[in-house]
Amino acid sequence: MKTLALFVVVITGAMLIYAGHDLPAFGDINSPSYQAPMTQYFINNSLEESGVTNIVTALLASYRGYDTLGETAVIFTAGMAVMLLLRRRER
């Protein structure tokens, strides 16, 4: 069982390393994700559009605000789920 798990892990790791050779090098300014028009748009326009200097906050709360609302709902639901799972016996 452990040998099989080790075998699977090593094969998967080798495949991921092999796939990683096509990805951009560490710290490469020409990487596609950085040169994408979307990324450049966020860096250049986030201040005028959302008024905050922290680009990550502008993305999180303004451009992706609906997603962050869902995220807050996720953490709220997790808290309620743990409460229901563990406090049921006390009542």
């Binding site: 994700s33 990324t39 990550v56 999180l60 997603d67 962050t68 995220e71 996720v74 639901t77 997790a78």
Partner: peptide
């Protein structure tokens, strides 16, 4: 900034799944 934002979301979801 885009991966930072994505990972901020992912960390919160990771905390929630770990708690449950």
């Amino acid at each position: 900034p885009v991966p930072h934002c994505l990972i901020l979301t992912a960390i919160v979801v990771a905390v929630s799944t770990t708690a449950v």
